[in-house]
Computed example of a mutant assay.
Amino acid sequence: MRQSDAGRRDPGVIEERIGYAFRDRALLTRALTRLAYTLEAGLPADAHMDALATLGDAVINVAVVEAVIAKGAHDKGAITNRKMNLVNMTRLRALAEDLALADYVRWGKGEAAQKVWTSGRVLAECLEALVGAVYLDGGMEAAAGVLRRLGLTESV
């Protein structure tokens, strides 16, 4: 349900849904901005989510492994298997869909026309970017709290 920038939903709703209020709202905006939009709008090279998605992927992995270990796992293979079962594109995409994250992302025109969020890894990357932004804004504890509230690490 891609909306024009003027009609795009208030990203503050995402803060309510994840239970985290950004001190630096620019990080939230960046986490919700695709590279294609940045290029089309003539925004600075660092105004899109890609780096945040890479960071968020790592943060999610650390948070999940920490949660698995905290629940008593000690075998490397068991920890790895549990992490792989919890952190995958399908699971992250489902969490993004539950947040209606696609409604808040600034998509490029071609992405919007193709509705790229309806297939593949795109929404999972958007969720990773959001987690990366939370990490930069509030640290590991804040990011782990968001993942707990979303239910990712509650089922460890």
Results as ranks from 00 to 15, higher is better:
E141Q: 14
A21E: 02
A51T: 10
L43T: 04
D57F: 13
R8C: 06
L127G: 05
D24N: 15
V87P: 03
L55I: 11
R23W: 00
I79A: 09
A129Q: 03
D5M: 11
A142K: 08
L123Q: 11
E15G: 12
S119E: 13
A143L: 02
V87F: 05
L152N: 04
R25L: 08
R91V: 14
D46L: 11
G145E: 02
R34W: 10
A73S: 14
A21L: 02
D75V: 14
E15F: 07
I18W: 00
L28C: 07
E125S: 12
A94N: 13
E97A: 07
R82T: 14
A100E: 15
R106M: 04
A94Y: 06
Y20P: 02
P11Y: 00
A94L: 11
M49G: 06
A36P: 09
G56D: 06
A113T: 13
A53F: 02
V64P: 01
V116N: 08
Q3E: 11
V13D: 03
G139K: 08
R91W: 02
V131H: 09
T54Q: 12
R148H: 08
F22K: 04
R9F: 00
V116S: 12
A96H: 03
L130C: 03
V13A: 09
I18Y: 00
L150W: 04
T118M: 08
D57M: 12
G77Q: 13
R149P: 02
R121F: 08
I60M: 14
L127S: 01
D137E: 06
E40P: 13
L127W: 02
I14G: 00
D50Q: 10
